[in-house]
Computed example of a mutant assay.
Amino acid sequence: MRGSRTTVIYGVLVALALGLGLAVNQSPPLSVVPSVDNPGPLGLRALYLYLQEPGAPVSALREALDGPGLTESIRTVVVAAPSGRPMAESEAEALRSWVSQGGTLVYLASRNAKAREPHLETWLQLSEGPMLEPSSEGLPPGERDLAGTTVRVWVPVGAARGLERLRVSLDRGITVGRPEAVPLAGAKGAAVLWRMPEGRGEVYVLAGTDLAENRRLELLDNLRFWDALAARGPLAFDEYHHGTAPKQEPPSARGLWVFVAQGLLVGLFYAVSRGTRFGPPRPLVVEKHRSALEYVRSLGWLARRSKVERELVPELARQLRRHMHERLGIPLTLPEDEAARMLEQTCGLPAADYLAAREDLVRTMEQRDIRPSDYARLARQYARFENLLTGR
């Protein structure tokens, strides 16, 4: 029993040790950004320190190229396959103006056409070149670079003066479409280094960042190319476009919370309205509607109680005259006797009956109190006249 317990304890300790060892030995993935701050194989840290060690004026531009950082005191600017921030059109124009005034631009173009800067692409007219062939020419014995190849310097001018061979990646070359551009180095029709004049300055275009990477910096004549550029004067590496653009503030979540609260409120209302009630349901109340006769009786009782308003009596005469005007064309401005005569001629209603009803209405209006029976009598008379007018 004691031996098994000891075995279990030792097993747990061994597992913990293995776990801690794996956690400690896990190193972060190697960076592929060609930055002077990257000490990995694909970084440019070794080149930056190499040029800085003898006291050469080397710096890193960490501001936009159209700002105050790009001055005439800088002789060479290295733009190494930027992939963080996109280069703005104003920056490309400022860079081109700076080159035309006597500066030197070294553009290490990415071999991935989609990752290149469109404004520099338009200016330099870049396109992919043919594939390079593998070659180990010039490598010292024992030196192995399976992913690289050797290219020869065809035209040793400018920064390539005195150079013979360069070591680059075994990948595609690059083509510059400007007619004044000259290929300086390559292998069997595939160029990897171009030189193009621009005003009083010049532009060097390289396929990829191979000549500046830490892993191939000491091979063949790669370092001598950078020595020639550093000998011209202050050299600056563009680091601004390797950084990531500042993240924009996330939109306010207030609207989202309001939407969620509304959804919860609607769900709660639905649950309350459709949910099961606590306790037995109440009996259904049967509503009995009143008949139309009851409504008429109630209205009559209300009229008797409130008595007849005096304005209702002349309204009977005015309404009849409107019907006579609309149906028979009898003008409203005619006197009553003439209107009675025209009424008799058109529809056969005796003029005496119309005038008698008119006199009854006038007498009723002269009374102090108008009884409902008086109003009912007048309403019956004028209703009979309206029926004759309408043909009923």
Rank of each mutant, 00 (worst) to 15 (best):
Q262C: 14
P246F: 11
S252P: 01
S273R: 15
Q262P: 01
V266G: 11
L264D: 05
G279L: 10
R254Q: 12
A230G: 05
L268V: 04
F237L: 02
F278K: 12
L265F: 11
G243C: 08
G233H: 07
A253C: 06
R274K: 07
Q248C: 13
G255V: 14
A253Y: 12
F278W: 11
F269V: 13
A245S: 09
H242T: 07
Q248I: 12
R232W: 11
T276S: 10
D238F: 03
G255K: 12
S252F: 06
Y270D: 06
A236E: 01
H242G: 07
L268N: 02
A236C: 01
G243H: 07
G279V: 04
S252Y: 08
A245I: 09
L235Q: 00
A271P: 00
V266L: 15
Q248V: 13
E249T: 08
V266C: 11
Q248L: 15
A231F: 14
Q248D: 14
A261F: 11
A245G: 02
V260H: 06
A231H: 08
L265E: 00
A261E: 01
E249I: 12
L265V: 10
A253L: 14
L264M: 14
P246H: 06
P246Y: 06
P246M: 04
G275R: 02
T276V: 13
K247V: 00
F278C: 08
G263N: 01
A231S: 11
P251C: 10
A231R: 15
Y270F: 15
P251Y: 14
Q248K: 15
G263W: 13
W257R: 03
R232T: 07
P250G: 07
E239W: 04
V266H: 09
Y240G: 05
A261P: 00
F259L: 14
D238L: 09
V272M: 04
F237Y: 10
